[in-house]
Design a protein around this nucleic acid. Structure first.
Lengths: 329, 329
DNA sequence: AACCAAAATGGTAGCGCTAACATCATGGAT
DNA sequence: ATCCATGATGTTAGCGCTACCATTTTGGTT
């Protein structure tokens, strides 16, 4: 059976479409008896207002597009959950798109969102180059990016405070008496890598340790990279007491290398990772690391989006990660 | 700046809106020069057809609603990916909703999808009671449920073949020479539990082992349940040689109990789980288990939905899980 | 040059709803 | 009885687009 329209409901209730509209949207005034009669007809016909038609005139769709690089990466479902909870509460529906790490798909998805006239978009860790990203975002009424910068006119930013996290890690190391601290800095091209390296340097210089070169070792962002990087670092500095890894995988690689070389962790070498992936807790010794507030990232991004939709431009939000102290440091 | 409309494009190109429409949708015939001129104007104005207005008249939104119980459960992102890949290819956009395991939210989401006039919905492992679910699904033009039955008029079904999987597990155990095989059957209310128990019974009776009572032990669906269930089972049957767990967590619990009691796995007791969660591969010994084709579940559900949208009612699809032989059996 | 099928374009209406205004009832104050 | 603020309802128009049909142009044929 075809869907019942507002006109049909109006006809059956013996009123005009406007009166039905007023009842459905709870706006304007309607005599209680009339309202009741209309509600009865609505129930009988199981009428559902056509959101499409409504959107056409109100110029609002109450939908938000959310782009995530990869839902099978356990980082992102938490972000989604944060956004989804906010959306649900605010009466918004989310178009979630998993682009499977493909920039081309990110592009297409953003275009489709535009055709769908979403009220705004949130892009999580965009994979597109700055320029193209800005271009695509500017087609939307409002936008927020997570863990990436964007021109303030085009999009707001919510990000993890990488610099703070790194400082926190290094402080912890210093407090436990280590002086000679190296960093496995990840790939030079990585934004997070740069920010975390900066935090590492800040923490050291703030506590009076002058930065000497050769303690910041670039590496691939996986276990292999950590494994090799650690060996290079140790070869260069026999007095190495602690290592801060670009991420948990790198730290785990370093851990493995240390153990193979007969070093005790944390007695001989302290190790700290970043991200708190599940494997971090499972390692032996369990990895001390920094936990990013993923849920908060999603929730804050959504809140900021609503503010931007209303025309304001709030400053960037930086969420501080939490140091999770386990056994490795 | 406000969005450019088709009328504005038409005006600038010196043609009627219809001609622009024909170019945009690639329908009907337009002289090459005219087409080019229009395309130029479209590019200049970065015109994006308003999908809302289009949907209102075509009565199609090219959107599909997808409901998942919990994206932070690693099972579901793979399902989503399967559906998303199909959707993307077919030009559809997905409304994905993570209901955080809340039936009330499932209800609300399904209603909102109806208001959005999605062309169809896929509900993954619905949390709603049969009757209410059927009611809500029947409001949609088409529907498919994953891992759950529904009236064929209301929704199609794509499911993992639990019975087959259980039979496969038990066969494997029998082939390796175990005769006295118990099952930790999970909660009695669980649909998967019942189907897997049936497969267990089928496999045993098919190979001439008569089913005696007391070998099918209900338990909670977590490690704790498996741990306690195993102890009860072993107390009752000293000759226990193998255990098939309702899911991996249960099997892992059993594994722990066995090891604590000094039993060697798999030498003294063979253990098989179900689901192949990440932890299964990480356990010592690594857990033999059944891997559900999660991606296939999502992909097949989407394909079936398209068929149902076209008015047909294809039979249910059962996807066979794969036995992943590791060390525990 | 007249003709005509096909190609190319335009006009009109309406999808289902609501913004904005117009109209009509109601009942207390005068 | 008259007035009018307020409450309650209806009318009109139009959001941006496309289905459907009407009209005009084009490039051969005769």
């Amino acid at each position: 059976m075809p869907k019942v329209t507002i006109t049909e409901v109006a006809r059956r209730a013996g009123v005009s479409a406007m009166t039905v509209s007023r009842v459905v949207n709870n706006t304007g005034m309607v005599r209680p008896e009339t309202r009741e009669r209309i509600l009865r007809v609505i129930a009988e016909t199981s009428y559902r207002p056509n959101g499409i038609a409504r959107s056409l005139i109100t110029q609002k769709t109450m939908t938000i597009g959310l782009v995530v690089p990869d839902l099978t990466n356990p980082f992102f479902p938490d972000v989604v959950r944060g956004a989804e909870d906010q959306a649900f509460e605010g009466g918004y529906t989310l178009y979630i798109s998993d682009i499977a790490e493909l920039p081309a798909r990110e592009e297409r998805v953003l275009e489709r969102f535009e055709a769908s006239r979403v009220d705004g978009v949130i892009v999580c860790a965009p994979r597109l180059p700055d320029e193209r990203l800005a271009e695509l975002l500017s087609g939307h009424p409002a936008a927020v990016v997570i863990n990436r910068e964007a021109p303030p006119k085009v999009a707001g930013t919510v990000a993890n405070d990488d610099t703070y996290g790194a400082m926190r890690a290094v402080h912890h190391l210093l407090q436990s008496g280590r002086e000679h601290i190296g960093m496995l800095a990840g790939p030079p091209a990585s934004r997070a890598g740069r920010l975390r390296s900066r935090g590492y340097e800040n923490a050291l210089s703030a506590s009076g340790h002058e930065m000497k070169s050769g303690w910041l070792e670039p590496c691939e962002s996986n276990e292999h990279g950590g494994y090799n990087g650690f060996k290079r670092l140790l070869k260069r500095h026999k007095n190495l007491q602690a290592v801060f890894g670009y991420n948990d995988l790198v730290a785990l690689g370093a851990l493995q290398a240390a153990q193979e070389m007969g070093l005790r962790v944390p007695e001989d070498i302290a190790i700290i990772g970043y991200d708190d992936i599940r494997m971090a807790a499972l390692a032996t010794p369990a990895l001390t690391t920094l936990r990013v507030d993923r849920y908060g990232l999603g929730a804050e991004a959504f809140k900021m989006l609503l503010i931007r939709i209303s025309g304001k431009q709030p400053p960037a939000v930086l969420l501080r990660p939490e140091l999770v102290v386990r056994q490795s440091a």
